[in-house]
């Protein structure tokens, strides 16, 4: 069954088109990633799908419910973890959860059981009566995820779930997200500008840039489409290997600084044969390594730009901060 259907969804702020006629479809139970730099339109897309922002044009159905016609129906079906914190710091974790449960009209008994269960899941039960303002960034994030799941949504939106967290906490959160998807079958749509996050979590990834989806596929397929793997061989005979090695599946070989750099498709499959060829010719191999293309390469391939969020251009940052004026 289709969990999310998006059809030429568009959002304009004045002259600036934040999201430009994007279309995609997400089957139930998938973890779907929206990958792109800051200001690409990821959050705007999430805001529209979660009914916070009215689309300029286009259509979107969540579990078959139109986001424009039945906002409450959509809201009941979704859980949202926003990019920016949305907890009440003056309340305790438990009270934040309780507030949420009441808003979604979960009966008292079930509500209290589930709050305890969720807080246990994100390992915050010991701190449940502390005010949220005493929480660290990672704890807040976990609490927000727990809260987003309290009303058992069938679709969960995670907008930059691990932004600004330390590597250990990120790993931890990834495990949660993965487990959630596996055990509860929740459809998850997450936005990120971390390549490793998309690669590790997502069944499929849409690469979005300047409001347009430039590619959608599994991370593996996206990487294959971008092209070749590279095998690096260090050898005293590097020059000769580079000159002599020939095979239909080898796209090219060069020698550089004592290393042979061989470009080819599906390096793992051809590696044994490659080694046989080289040692059969009597050459010695000191070391060998394979480099597979990353989503970083994919992004570069599709947009012609590197995606380094830390170095987002001034124009991009302006666009982020004042979407209405551009």
């Amino acid at each position: 069954m289709t969990a999310i259907l998006v059809d030429s969804l568009t959002k304009r702020f004045g002259d600036f088109t934040a999201v430009d006629a994007i279309s995609f479809e997400i089957p139930e139970g998938e973890i779907f990633g929206l990958l792109g730099p800051n200001g690409a339109g990821k959050t705007t897309t999430i805001s529209m799908l979660s009914t916070l922002l009215e689309p300029t044009s286009g259509r979107a159905l969540l579990n078959g419910i139109d986001i424009r016609k039945d906002q409450d129906g959509v809201r009941k079906a979704i859980g949202v973890v926003f990019q920016d914190q949305s907890l009440d710091e003056e309340l305790t974790a438990w009270e934040n959860m309780d507030f949420h449960g009441r808003l979604y009209r979960i009966p008292k008994k079930i509500r209290e059981e589930r709050i305890d269960e969720m807080l246990r899941l994100v390992e915050l039960e010991e701190r449940k009566d502390s005010l949220v303002k005493t929480y660290s960034g990672g704890m807040r994030r976990r609490l927000e995820i727990a809260r987003g799941l309290l009303h058992e949504p069938s679709i969960l939106f995670l907008d930059e779930p691990t932004l600004g967290l330390d590597p250990q906490t990120r790993n931890h959160l990834w495990e949660y997200i993965h487990t959630l998807n596996q055990t509860k079958g929740i459809t998850i749509i997450l936005t990120t500008h971390y390549m490793d996050e998309a690669d590790r979590l997502c069944g499929r990834v849409a690469i979005i840039d300047q409001g347009i989806i430039v590619a959608i596929d599994t991370p593996a397929n996206l990487k294959t489409r971008v092209g070749e793997d590279v095998v690096y061989i260090t050898s005293p005979d590097a020059g000769r290997i580079a000159d002599e090695i020939k095979a239909p599946w080898i796209l090219g070989a060069e020698q550089y600084d004592g290393q042979v750099i061989i470009r080819l498709h599906s390096a793992e499959d051809h590696l044994p044969e490659l080694l046989r060829m080289i040692s059969g010719d009597g050459y010695t191999i000191a070391s060998i390594s394979i480099r597979k293309p990353t989503l970083e390469d994919v992004f570069l391939h599709y947009t012609g730009r590197e995606m380094r969020h830390e170095e987002a251009g001034v124009a991009d940052q302006m666009r982020m901060r004042t979407p209405r004026r551009n």
Binding site: S50, L52, G73, R75, I78, D84, S86, L87, E89, L103
Partner: peptide
């Protein structure tokens, strides 16, 4: 400003 309003606005109320 602190984002809490969003939490109430995406709820089915």
């Amino acid at each position: 400003q602190f984002g809490f309003l969003k939490e109430t606005l995406v709820a089915p109320v």
